[in-house]
Write a protein that binds this DNA or RNA. Structure first.
Lengths: 313, 313
DNA sequence: ACCGGAACGAAAATATCTTTCACATCGTGA
DNA sequence: TCACGATGTGAAAGATATTTTCGTTCCGGT
């Protein structure tokens, strides 16, 4: 049996980087209005301009003490700066502080270093995975996806192959499909995978998940499935890899930067899971009639409240 | 060895020290804590999450009237969200509003519908998962995370518990830890998990992964580990759930919107994996000396990207 | 030295926030 | 079904914070 090999080529371009926020012109206002201020008021204005965040945490009394003035003076200053009262100045101050905070561009574009503080690690990882999602979504061929969904929705049975980190993705897909009543199985044992692949026939679906696109243990069962006439799908980061030879539909995941502290296995997984989710939702839509009860059931199960004791005052 | 069970309620950052006011991860927090809120509180939380700027301009009484509740409820909600009182919530709100003001991408806020075209599904899923990542990153307590990392880095052995979708996350973490030379094992069989938990002792680490925070099969082994003196960590979407009773460190994942076509199991996974990645990178940093060779090896293995496509017989 | 006026702060007056407490509501088990 | 206990809720009392009032102080000019 001779079957054609499809190819997809696309390099995703992710979302843009948000522009730096416009700075509130409070400092300028202070400088402009300083001449028309009395000495005490200037002290207050200066304190406010110097440390918005800190002052935002203070009450009128607090700020008055800090600047060695009185509450009345603080309120007068707030008025002079254009606010109805101190309360509003304080609100504006909080906003300013937040802007300044977010304005500090965390160097997330750089790679993760060994001595990065943990907060940076979190930010960088999150940013990176977001990027991977954006890229994968942008680069995903919806035609291929729709085709894969159709095949899955009408499949007699579905086998999913994946080893290592991709094995977990395969299992994730399987779990989801089972939940909506499809017959699916994940294989991470190459031998068993091939053994089972032999049982496949036209109308069945075989899916291979591999980031590198050249994992023999996964390609082999897909090849067998392909030759048995099953509809084959490849979820891979390398649309030009060997695995696509035997894939009717290729779903490409984005390949993010990798490095020592950011192994490929990590970022690839994110994109693969997005694809898996898309497949799942697509199939759920198609088989909504039969899937709805199961979906509702699992939704209910989690919606049910496990009430816990409330806090004491 | 007997260890005291912690109080059920925990606003996210453990320890007896006064919890610092959380950053502007408000929408995330609202979603995370929504399930543990009463109806009235949910109304307030929703209003606040929906229009931070507008609410920041309101007084307690105003917000109470707007949401058709009482001042008391508003204050209670503020407390639940982690602020000392409404005043502070309002301040945070102002900050959030300012941040939002300074430009953000338009959101695809609608839910996934049964008749959505596949392209929309992809976009919505991608957006949603990105949101989950951002929320989780913003809401993650770095102190708790650092503590968990320390414990892991020095652990004699590490057990990870998780069932269902969370089981895959547990496996993912285990795979990663093993790769850098740590002794880790994932358990999805409750019986075996408990059996193994009994073997744990001080210096060991036990990690429970559960979105709902009330999965008995996962809580039980964690309890045993806790009582045996092991350092326990909970990765959960419900920082007020029962599981946190036995957790020395709680790592909270964001709870995204869920619906019929978007089960909790799906979006929760994304956040959990981010946390897992953070743990992994954190530990890799700490144990860099010993981890580097293994990391380099696996990097090398994948760096040979262009392995010539070989046609199997 | 004396006066006029602006600057300033103490304290009263007001607004706002927090806590308390009693009642309503709901789920649960007899 | 009913009674009961637990939980959710808001009105109003209580505590804080903000704003206003008003008298005192501090100048600079006669």
């Amino acid at each position: 049996m001779t079957r054609e090999v499809k190819k997809t080529f696309d390099s995703g371009s992710g979302g843009g980087v948000p522009a730096p926020p416009p700075p509130a012109a409070l400092a300028a206002k202070v400088r402009t209005l300083a001449p028309s201020m009395t000495r005490s008021m200037q002290r207050v204005a200066e304190a406010v301009a110097e440390d918005p965040a800190g002052c935002a945490a203070l009450t009128v009394t607090g700020l008055a003490q800090l600047t060695g003035t009185s509450e009345a003076t603080v309120v007068r200053t707030a008025r002079l700066l254009g606010y109805p009262g101190y309360r509003d100045l304080r609100l504006a101050l909080a906003g300013l502080a937040a802007q300044q905070q977010s304005g500090r561009a965390p160097a997330i574009t750089t790679d993760i270093a060994v001595d990065d503080p943990i907060a940076d690690v979190v930010a960088k990882l999150a940013y990176d995975e977001q990027q991977t999602l954006a890229d994968t979504a942008a680069g995903l061929d919806t035609v291929q996806l729709a085709a894969a969904v159709s095949a899955l929705a009408g499949a007699r049975r579905t086998d999913v192959y994946g080893v290592g980190a991709s094995g977990l993705v395969a299992q994730d897909l399987t779990q989801k499909l089972l939940r909506i009543g499809l017959l699916a199985h994940a294989h991470s044992d190459p031998h068993l995978a091939v053994t089972n692949a032999v049982q496949l026939r036209p109308g069945d679906v075989a899916i291979a998940v591999t980031h590198s696109g050249s994992t023999g243990d996964v390609i082999e069962p897909l090849r067998v499935a392909f030759e048995r006439g099953a509809t084959t799908v490849a979820v891979t980061g390398r649309p030009d890899g060997p695995v696509t030879q035997y894939a009717d539909h290729v779903l490409t995941t984005s390949t993010a930067r990798e490095s020592e502290l950011r192994p490929a296995a990590m970022s690839s997984r994110t994109g693969q899971l997005l694809v898996v989710d898309c497949l799942f939702v697509g199939v759920a839509q198609r088989t909504y009639e039969s899937a709805a009860p199961s979906l509702a059931a699992s939704y209910e199960a989690l919606a049910h409240r496990h009430r816990v004791p409330r806090q004491s005052p």
